[in-house]
């Protein structure tokens, strides 16, 4: 029995050897980067340029920052500015750098029963609440969800618990599909929409543009002072790659071959205020 257990442990480490040999760089990131297909592509490009391998731990931005706040990942790529500032304020992260942006959009049935087409974001949310048209929210504390809730707040509406307001507690594409199925309105990032339009023919983009709909991604290193076990050299290499010439060039062209337009705009070195 003891021999079997020993053999078991030896086998685990031998059969899977190569993966264990290189220390794993863990990157906490969000479902939107996965659902757009950016993660796999940029992960491969990162390996090509640095020889390092990034392992992505994917969850909503809120959950990702919680994981990072325990020191369980080395670096995060997220899009929830208020949560990010709190994360740094708590001493969990350092070296927050602007990486890229796309924008948020409001989608709904083309017939637009709530008549929000062409409105700015806040008036559109007010009109949605007034019409009580069905709306599907992520409801998962993701960056998209946090932004959506901030817009409801700005519109002076508390949608939680309303009959027309549903929470999917799912990733971005699943939420869009649910909205399409229910002929509901939905708040999403443009990247996921562009990458999956052919699945979502029942949804039309009704509201877009305007500074309050910017979706900004930052990379933040998890503090090596607070969490000595993190791979800070790897984290720095990842942040340097993303904000350096190679990563920025990759972001600028990602999606052009498949969707005709880039999904994200590279922003490294810019001032966040200048994006508005």
């Amino acid at each position: 029995m003891t021999r079997a257990l020993l053999l078991a442990l030896v086998m685990i480490f031998v059969t899977c050897g190569p993966a264990a040999a290189s220390r794993s760089l863990l990157v906490g990131t969000t479902t939107t980067t996965q659902d757009t297909g950016l993660l796999d592509a940029i992960g491969a490009d990162f390996t090509r340029h640095t020889g390092l391998r990034a392992r992505f731990v994917v969850a909503g931005s809120g959950q990702t920052l919680q994981t990072a706040g325990r020191g369980d990942v080395d670096v995060v790529l997220v899009h929830s500015p208020s949560d990010e500032l709190a994360f740094i304020g708590d001493g969990n992260g350092i070296d927050r750098r602007l990486v890229m942006h796309d924008d948020f959009i409001v989608l709904g049935p083309a017939s637009d029963p709530a008549r929000i087409r062409g409105l700015a974001a806040v008036p559109a949310f007010r009109a949605l609440a007034a019409s009580a048209a069905p709306f599907v929210s992520r409801g998962d504390g993701s960056g998209t969800n946090v932004k959506e809730l901030a817009l409801w707040k700005a519109a002076g509406v508390d949608p939680k618990g309303k009959a027309w307001y549903a929470e999917s507690a799912a990733g971005q594409l699943a939420t869009l599909q649910l909205a399409a199925q229910r002929r509901a309105y939905v708040f999403a990032d443009r990247g996921t929409w562009l990458a999956n339009q052919k699945l979502l023919l029942d949804l039309a983009v009704l509201v877009d543009g305007g500074p309050e709909l910017l979706n900004v991604y930052h990379v933040i290193r998890v503090s090596p002072m607070k969490f000595p076990k993190v791979d800070d050299a790897g984290a720095k290499a990842f942040a340097d790659y993303l904000t350096g010439a190679d990563g920025q060039r990759f972001i600028a062209t990602f999606g052009v071959d498949r969707f005709g337009v880039p999904l994200f705009t590279p922003d490294a070195g810019k001032n966040e205020a200048d994006l508005r």
């Binding site: 685990i12 899977c16 993966a19 264990a20 794993s24 392992r55 969490f227």
Partner: peptide, 15 residues
């Protein structure tokens, strides 16, 4: 990493 076996660095591996 914050767990009891965190030092083994096995999270996100085949092991």
């Amino acid at each position: 990493r914050s767990g009891p076996l965190g030092d083994l660095n096995l999270y996100c591996t085949r092991q």
